[in-house]
Design a protein around this nucleic acid. Structure first.
Lengths: 335, 335
DNA sequence: AGAGTGCGTCGAAGCGCTTCGACCGACCGC
DNA sequence: GCGGTCGGTCGAAGCGCTTCGACGCACTCT
């Protein structure tokens, strides 16, 4: 392994000089700088991460805690994780992957050991048990998601409430008077995953506001579950013509089941979903949707967390405005 | 921050003794051991990761390089990543997440800086540009996937060739004489992603062996692409009654399109896929499938890599045997 | 001309941990 | 009862880096 000292000897300068060339924390003459850089290149020098962390008390690592549940829509998680990783790299950070499994213990371990300079937490529940720890420790953290109490925390998320409202508004404008929400799996609500409830709240408020009927039914993933849910909905409210799909993995089954029941989309019924664009575009009917801006969320989270590590102490909640894109799955309500 | 020295003082022993209690590398009397452990607990001590890495030349971190392309089926990647992370934790390792974006530079950076003790690479291409580096460096690495030349490398993968063969065998046994493969996206083959070609090779060899007709068509994700591909297949070979689906995201669209064309599954045509069980079970027809054992692959990769860090120098290729589960999407060929 | 001011560089002191050799009793066998 | 052995503990020497204070030099200002 090549060390700083070897580079210094090779370049004929002191070790500290090499360090300053690398960090730029003191001015170095262009001549010396050149010489040092050449030595670094020729020797193939890479600073030792541990030594650097020890001396500077910074690891240049951000910990990312992802859920390991399977009842969530995985691609969104993956997309966020990748966005976090690539954005972090552009800021000189690497990303340590943690699963939710360890829970609060992981938070303690990582902050306690100086393994990471900061944390980004995904899949935050309304009353998440990791939050007290984050508030107590002075380590930087950003949540992707929105807990019940955001005091002392920084959060980034899609404004799911507004997203739900936009869906209802869009359908209502098209003349639909009876709407149904194909919801998340029941476990999702039980866990108090904030986004599910917030979407629903937005949907309900807007429906009340606009005076349209609304039925909400939680729904597991899979064709069979969707078929059963849909049957119940049409039993209770035969006049339903507009659907808001909250559970991304229910999208394609829903379209299939509707087709099977002889309901044409968008002629007989309209469907609007809260889902990633990829899902909306890949569906058998190109879906009108509010997209979940996974990349943007990952990027924002990293930028916030980097700012915090850099000394910005502010806590804030960044709610991304939803964007509804009209595609082929929504149309005027049948007469 | 609590340090080793403080723990030592609190427990009334030397710092080295605390270290030995923690590592177990020398025997310590039970009395001392107890006292030290209590001090650790009371003070809330966590060893500083950087200092530990510096002194021991081990970071207890495994780097995991995931692809950041979008033409692959993401859930499998995520599942592997999560399995790697949780398995790594049981061995005392954390996982550093790298995206393929940086390519070989990331390999150099990580091995050069001692950031990680070992690497696990996913999405390995047949002639991957990172391989020479891995062979050259003496750092431990395990590939998930199979490059063209495995000399000097450790690999873990599903035996996709055998998987393809199993699919064909299953269909042929049921009497199907004309089969079609709904393949991966064309870019996948262009990139020489090994698994796509290996599956195909297995399929072709078995079809030849058993004397059944075979047509292979690459296929993008999405309903429209699948519909077009299927149309071409039935044009060329109207007698086709068996489908092997290689591209997981084509599963549901395929079923929908077949339904749309009035072909019942499994009465008229049979469908067998190489996909995760989750997909097979969630589909509108429960699919006969060869499962992609993502968890198992992640677990094996970690175990290999941990063995290598522990000094086991052997290189080997672990090919997991495919398992075909018969479900509701395959049946006897129509008469 | 002498004091003051930067700039560029150096040396040394750690950062918190692991690990090696040494030391000290206690206990063994003969 | 004495050398030998061994379990248990300690002290010190780093690991490779950052960072602080100091130093020397070439300037500028008065």
């Amino acid at each position: 392994m090549v060390t700083l000292a070897e580079v210094a000897r090779h370049a004929g300068v002191a070790a500290s000089t090499v360090s300053y060339v690398l960090s730029g924390k003191r001015s170095i003459s262009t001549g010396t700088c050149e010489r040092v850089r050449r030595s670094i290149r020729e020797l193939g020098y890479h600073p030792h991460a541990g030594a650097r962390a020890l001396a500077s008390s910074r690891s240049d690592i951000i910990a990312l805690m992802v859920p390991l549940r399977t009842d969530m829509y995985i691609p969104v998680m993956m997309e966020i994780a990748v966005a976090v990783t690539t954005t972090a790299r552009t800021h000189g950070y690497d990303v340590l992957l943690l699963t939710g499994e360890e829970g609060p213990a992981a938070v303690r371990r990582v902050t306690g050991s100086g393994l990471a300079d900061a944390m980004i937490l995904m899949d935050v529940e309304l009353d998440d048990e990791r939050l007290p720890l984050l508030r107590a420790s002075d380590s930087s953290a950003v949540l992707i998601g929105l807990p019940a109490d955001t005091a002392g925390l920084s959060c980034v998320d899609l404004d799911f409430g507004a997203a739900g409202a936009r869906c209802v508004e869009h359908l209502a404008r098209l003349g639909h008077r009876e709407l149904a929400v194909i919801g998340e799996a029941p476990t999702m609500y039980e866990r108090h995953a904030g986004f599910a409830e917030r979407t629903l709240d937005g949907v309900r408020a807007e429906a009340r506001e606009l005076g349209v009927g609304l039925l909400h039914r939680p729904c597991e993933a899979g064709h069979a579950a969707v078929a059963a849910t849909l049957a119940r909905i049409f039993d209770e409210r035969p006049a339903t013509t507009g659907f808001v799909v909250q559970n991304e993995s229910a999208v394609e089954p829903l379209l299939a089941v509707l087709r099977g029941r002889g309901r044409a989309v968008p002629e007989d019924v309209s469907v609007v979903a809260v889902c990633p664009d990829q899902v909306a575009l890949g569906a058998s009917v190109r879906l009108t949707s509010v997209s979940v801006p996974a990349k943007e969320m990952g990027r924002r989270a990293v930028e916030r967390v980097v700012a915090k590590v850099g000394g910005d102490p502010s806590d804030d909640v960044t709610l991304l405005a939803p964007e509804l894109t009209v595609r082929a799955s929504t149309g005027p309500a049948p007469a």
